[in-house]
Design a protein around this nucleic acid. Structure first.
Lengths: 191, 191
DNA sequence: GTCTATATGCGGATAGAC
DNA sequence: GTCTATCCGCATATAGAC
């Protein structure tokens, strides 16, 4: 991939994640990269094309990151996945926000792309991890629930200060992951 | 509240929920209601004011709905809340989408409003329900986790077909709520 | 590949008549 | 309260020079 295209995708990803697709103009992206707005139309057909390319770019990279992580932690796969997912969602702001935006606004096509690129592997990992004694169908339900737990847990973090009255916005990824894993295991044993 | 103001708020809520704030123009809303675009500026100072008023309108109404529901189900409060929340998120598209948008894009002020109007009560209900034997701090953590479980579970529903390979997009609210409650109880007993 | 220049339309917002 | 008319800036997108 050309360097300019890469720069445009990275910049677009950061801006889209922060403000949303509609709120970011082709001019905004061009200005940050330091080229003219017209130049973007040499690299991308139109704005929809840029958005689609940006999502593919980000999700494929993160999918690879997860793949590497899983391979490096052959022991407890469920543990490895949950820690990777929580940590990534809490520290990789671009990925996290684009993922949430897609879950809300993505059409069938884009949701399918998201499933393929980042979620297929963790889904398989969890399904295998919880399989013992369960039907294949049940294992799938549990797996998808777990993905939901992580996604939901990180999404509501900003509510914490307002509800608990204390400012624990600083809760770290390891603590959240450990809490979730404890819950999953306790639910798992009695299933 | 005047009838016109009410109509504008309801229409704005539906359009904002569906497409997002930036993607909806004052003209779009005016057209649906059947007035001119300039008329909106008699009722609202500017677009930001309309958005803020729309969110307050929707969240206050839903907060009242929850309040009524909780009062009518004095038995198992946790059960009542989870069923209300899951059902509402799965059937009230306007509320659900505005809530998710706020969790992503809301600033401190709007998140605080959301906490006050809809989340304060359920948070209290859960905290009380899980309190026995726990420190107040732990109970709060558990309560906020539960809110996250519900939020996450509903958010990932569109992923279900792509991941499980089967089209269970038709999973109903009761089934989801029952599954979540089972998990919460099994985690609760061993805490 | 990247630029300048421009067509064309939509957006928020206001003034002032009724 | 609601309308018509209008200002003005910004957005996407294209044409064509370099």
């Amino acid at each position: 991939m050309s360097d300019m295209r890469f720069q445009l995708l990275e910049t677009a990803a950061a801006l889209y994640a922060e403000r949303g697709y509609e709120a970011v103009s082709m001019r905004d992206i061009a200005k940050v990269v330091g080229v003219t707005q017209a130049n973007l139309y040499y690299h991308f057909k139109d704005k929809a094309d840029l958005i689609q390319a940006t999502l593919a770019h980000v999700f494929e990279l993160r999918g690879l990151s997860l793949q590497g992580w899983i391979a490096e932690h052959p022991g407890d796969q469920l543990d490895a996945f949950v820690r990777w997912f929580v940590t990534t969602l809490m520290t990789d702001r671009v990925f996290a926000r684009l993922l949430y935006r897609e879950l809300i606004d993505g059409d069938g096509e884009r949701i399918a792309m998201l499933s393929r690129t980042v979620l297929q592997l963790p889904f398989q990992v969890i399904t295998d991890a919880v399989a013992n004694g369960r039907s294949a169908q049940d294992a799938k339900m549990v797996a998808i629930s777990y993905v939901g737990f992580v996604v939901g847990q990180v999404l509501i973090l900003p509510l914490s200060p307002g509800l608990t009255g204390q400012d624990d916005g600083s809760e770290n990824a390891d603590a959240v992951a450990t809490r979730l894993l404890g819950l999953m295991r306790s639910a798992n044993v009695e299933a």
